[in-house]
Simulated assay, not measured.
Amino acid sequence: MVTKYRELFNSQFSQEKYEAFLKDLAHDFNYLPSFRVAESPFFISEKLKEQLLEGCKQLVDFIKREDFKALTQKSLLVNYHVPKENEHTHFLAIDFGICEEDGEIIPKLIEAQGFPSIFNYQAHLHKKFLKQYPFLEELSPYLDGIDETSYYALLRRTLLNGIAPEHVILLEIEPEKQNTKIDFYYCRKDFGIPVVCVTEVIKRGNQLFYTNERGEEVLIKRIYNRVIFDELENRKDLSLQFSFIDDLEVEWAGHPNWFYRISKFILPHLSGPYFIESTLLSDLEEIPEDLENYVLKPLFSFSGAGVIYNVNRKDIEGVMQKDLYILQKKVQYKPVLQAIEGNVKVEVRLLLLWPDGDENPTIASNVVRLSRGEMIGVKFNKDRDWVGGSIGLFV
């Protein structure tokens, strides 16, 4: 979309350079991400940037409404309700598909998540691209007046809230088996935050502890939560000493309730040029005849789980908990990224940080996902080139 940089990048690209890029990425931890890393960043024009910022602002304005918690309280009634919820989420991941409407390119909100994304990994991915393509120094993945130094400062403040790193843990289910574990490694490297499995947490009274590398029990004062409750519910083999619904003496970096409040649950409440028509199945007066133009999504799934792209009447009629699913109008992704061969679809995830004490969240960085197929997620494009996870660079 930015001809100058696209032509420059493509002219300098080679398979050898891509392999050197991947080797450099794998060098830090002797590990290459299990998800596919795309060959190219996405160059974002001034016009598209302004559209993304406008759509993001409209969503944040909705989240900041005085009645937002009342509007989303039902999301907690059908899920976990964790005590000591704070006033706002610490993290926002806002996904926009780059689409075409009436012959014009426009970002459309696919979903929003009040949950952390790969904040540490993206900063390092940017630096790996710079090593291979020095001219990218002219561009930036950061927004809101942020540079690399202030990005790390903002992320540190959000994660630690002034607490010593040894008393803050990144909590996950079997972290070594997660697709995003490279982000955990970078988080530990950048800030010294230990990575702990839910089964390793020790509960004494209403306090939590973990065992450090020296075999010492250390008090947990703050949890950087990366646990998805869907996965936790499905792992009946796990034995935990604590429950998330316990009244614990601990702070949350990313309180779990915000995962439910800011999710597909809010999509039916949104309207405007950047939002897609979405209807709760429980509010659906009749099933549309043109179902080929719709997609069926569970409200609280993660990473595309449970989504039915080619939906039929039986799929809708078979849903028992109709207040937990939405029927969403399909949008037409426009293949706007020119690869060496053919064009590629793009989704831009804006990453927002909202530390305690800040009146508003800061649009800090982004994730880009590239696709040549129907589905955007990196796991749906494993056998193709110029697809997978990447980063957007703003002019």
Rank of each mutant, 00 (worst) to 15 (best):
I202Q: 08
E138L: 05
P175N: 13
Y5L: 07
F229R: 03
K64N: 11
P141S: 09
S371P: 09
K17S: 10
T279Q: 07
E174L: 11
W252N: 01
Q328S: 05
L327R: 02
L160G: 15
A112Q: 06
L8K: 15
K84I: 01
I276Q: 08
Y224Q: 02
L143A: 13
R372C: 00
I316M: 08
R188H: 12
L281Y: 12
I110D: 00
Y185E: 10
L281Q: 10
K322I: 00
D290C: 03
Y294S: 01
L350Q: 12
E231N: 07
K203V: 11
P134Q: 07
F229H: 08
K382Q: 14
S117T: 11
L270D: 05
R188K: 11
K49F: 08
N343W: 03
L53E: 15
R372G: 12
E174T: 09
A26F: 04
C197E: 09
F119P: 01
K382N: 10
G192A: 11
Y274S: 05
G215R: 04
V307G: 13
A70S: 09
S150P: 02
A26Q: 08
S239W: 02
I163E: 06
V82M: 01
Q15F: 11
G357A: 04
Y142M: 00
G272F: 10
I202R: 09
G254E: 07
Y260H: 11
V82F: 06
V196D: 10
G215K: 00
Q58D: 12
I228Q: 13
Y186L: 04
D28L: 06
L284V: 02
V78N: 13
Y5M: 04
Q328H: 00
N206E: 12
Y142V: 01
R188G: 03
H81L: 12
I363T: 07
E217N: 06
L327K: 04
F380K: 08
P273R: 02
I220G: 05
K181V: 05
E85M: 15
K345D: 03
D385Q: 03
F265V: 00
V78Q: 14
D144G: 02
E292P: 00
S117A: 15
I202M: 07
T158A: 15
V368Q: 03
I202P: 09
P141W: 06
Q328V: 08
M375E: 14
I146R: 13
D247I: 04
K334S: 11
R226P: 13
L171Q: 11
